[in-house]
Computed example of a mutant assay.
Amino acid sequence: MKIEPIKAFTDNYIWALHHPTQQRLCVVDPGDSQPVFDYLEEHQLKLDSILITHYHNDHIGGVKALKQATGARVYGSVHDNLDFVDEALNEPESIVIFDDQYQFEILHVPGHTLGHIAYYEPHRQWLFCGDTLFKAGCGRMFEGEPKQFYQSLQKLAQLPPQTQVYCTHEYTLSNLAFAESVEPDNQVVKQLIAESQQRRKQQQATLPSTIASELASNPFLRCDQAPVIKAAHSADPAAKHDWQIFATIRRLKDNF
């Protein structure tokens, strides 16, 4: 199945999942309806379903218009209580799209928001994780507690290394700049910076990432590594547990 990013706003990606044999489409987190309508018209597709990871407007702003125009089935978090959701989901439930061809496991990953969910396709190892995990970063902690957010990230870190990570913002270069400040000798980070700069020069997305790449480069998944611990201790010598290291690194990123 082809998976493509539809650009929205300044740095959002609405992920478009194509049915392998039919002119049908599923989209993830359509914060704006017009780019999706344009994409449907350009490719002569019918919108089949909409997956929502959390309630922030840059992820749901286009849902009502798309649903009204196409009749697409809408999936979202049971915790968010959105009135336009047809099926409210929570871990450990699963859903199928495109006539049972693709099955997504629901992962509850609170931290960015309390109700945030991710969609994981275990057979093809695709992860649509919204704003929980970014390439070389993670979302801001708007509602959750540090320990809770850290546990959510650890849940994603346990997925198979080859899992394709489809997050919803083009924050890669700024995230990598911070990652390099935390681990200045990390050669994977340096390589990713060079690759990502080249992709952005060509107006290409830097995504998807992989879990393996994130484990090697993302400071928020590396809170047990000596350079990350050292960076955290420079700001908070009292930070001891992994989740406290995470909390300190997250505060440093907020002010980077």
Rank of each mutant, 00 (worst) to 15 (best):
Q187P: 07
G111P: 03
T132R: 06
F149K: 08
V189P: 07
A216H: 08
Q197N: 06
T172Y: 06
P219C: 03
F134Y: 15
W126P: 07
C138G: 05
L176M: 08
A136M: 03
I193E: 02
P208W: 06
Y166E: 14
Y119S: 02
G130M: 01
Q158Y: 10
T172M: 08
R222L: 02
C138R: 15
Q197E: 12
F142W: 14
P161E: 15
V188H: 13
A194L: 09
M141R: 12
T210F: 09
L127V: 07
H123I: 12
P110W: 03
I211F: 06
S213A: 14
K135C: 12
E214Y: 03
N218T: 00
V189D: 08
I193Q: 07
Q187H: 12
R199H: 06
Q158L: 14
L215P: 00
T132C: 09
L176R: 04
L176S: 05
R124T: 12
A157L: 01
Q164T: 05
A136F: 09
A205D: 00
F149P: 08
P146T: 08
T172G: 08
H169L: 15
H116R: 00
S174R: 15
R222W: 01
Q197R: 10
E143R: 08
R200V: 15
G111E: 02
G137F: 08
Q191K: 14
R124M: 09
T206D: 13
L215Q: 07
T168C: 15
Q197W: 07
T206E: 11
I193A: 06
P208Y: 04
Q148V: 14
S209D: 14
F142A: 13
H123W: 10
T168N: 15
P160M: 07
V188P: 03
D185L: 14
P208E: 04
K155D: 07
Q154T: 02
Q158E: 15
N218Q: 00
Y120E: 00
I211R: 02
